[in-house]
């Protein structure tokens, strides 16, 4: 399968944080959910992809081209970043005028259709918008030049459930065109369970896993057991565990194999939230 985004051994060092050998690929036509707790390195990775910050080492290829070939690549990318946008004294009308002079493929009628769909006033300064309205405007702006790759940092944060549903629907429509792909970081993992094809999980600057969502939901599971049952499980057969007041919650990576090895038949389905919590907070 052709990849739209390839990241290999990406490193970035700060005084108090380090991104270590980040490697993952986003296949064409797919939505990848990029998850991890605050400060895990999601935004840093996205900023590196966009060349907003520069890596210490590693390679980033978009549409099979090195990102140093900035101009051509960015013509095809739409971006929503957290707290990064146009100066708030501008209006949606201004944004249209500006973007016409930035992207060759800027589509004024598409932009105004979106504004209408989301009931955003075209002549009001951005600073008069609520957080949700602002987010919608950011998303609309990212979509209106027909990008082939969307890079979205927390695009649904601050949106109420209805707006979130609307936005997700837009992403789904966007992805209907098989040429288009999305890399989307989010805390709201339920959104990702609906739309993501791939999940990449970053923790403390390192990629812990990068797989298809179905693989993760099929393979991983949670075993809830007593201390006595837990003591019988070999260390190599589980990933992490958490001791609660009454039981042990054990994250396992291979449900089928586990069932054949142990006499524990009830394995709960995993959610991305469970996976994140157990991976980060669980003990080894």
């Amino acid at each position: 399968m052709e990849n739209v985004l390839e990241i290999k051994n990406l490193c970035k060092k700060y005084d108090n944080f380090e991104l270590k050998n980040v490697t993952f690929n986003l296949p064409k036509g797919m939505i990848m959910g990029f998850i991890g707790e605050n400060g895990a390195g999601k935004t840093t990775t996205l900023k590196l992809i966009l060349n907003i910050i520069k890596s210490n080492s590693g390679e980033i290829k978009i549409f099979n081209q090195n990102i140093k070939n900035d101009k051509n690549i960015k013509e095809e990318i739409g971006v929503v970043l957290d707290d990064i946008f146009f100066p708030e004294i501008l209006t949606p009308n201004d944004i249209n005028k500006i973007m016409k002079g930035i992207y060759k493929s800027w589509d004024t009628s598409l932009y105004y259709n979106y504004l209408k769909q989301f009931s955003l006033l075209t002549n009001k300064q951005i600073k008069t918008f609520s957080k949700g309205m602002r987010k919608k405007l950011e998303i609309i702006t990212a979509l209106s030049h027909h990008p082939k790759l969307l890079i979205l940092d927390e695009p649904t944060s601050g949106l109420d459930p209805i707006a979130r549903a609307e936005v997700i629907e837009i992403f789904q429509n966007f992805i209907e065109n098989e040429d288009c792909s999305i890399l989307l970081s989010s805390h709201i993992t339920t959104d990702l369970e609906h739309i993501a094809d791939y999940i990449t999980f970053i923790n403390d600057g390192k990629i812990i896993l990068s797989k298809t969502k179905d693989e993760i939901l099929d393979e991983y599971g949670i075993v809830k057991c007593t201390e006595k049952e837990f003591s019988k499980i070999n260390k190599q057969d589980y990933v992490k565990y958490k001791k609660t007041k009454y039981e042990y919650e054990v994250l396992i990576q291979n449900k089928k194999e586990f069932k054949t090895k142990y006499d524990i038949k009830i394995i709960d389905k995993i959610t991305l939230d469970d996976l994140m919590i157990l991976m980060i907070k669980g003990e080894e």
Partner: peptide, 14 residues
């Protein structure tokens, strides 16, 4: 105030 400089880099030849 709105981190425009960072945003502008995401544009072609930003």
């Amino acid at each position: 105030y709105n981190n425009w400089d960072a945003y502008s880099i995401s544009f072609p030849d930003g």
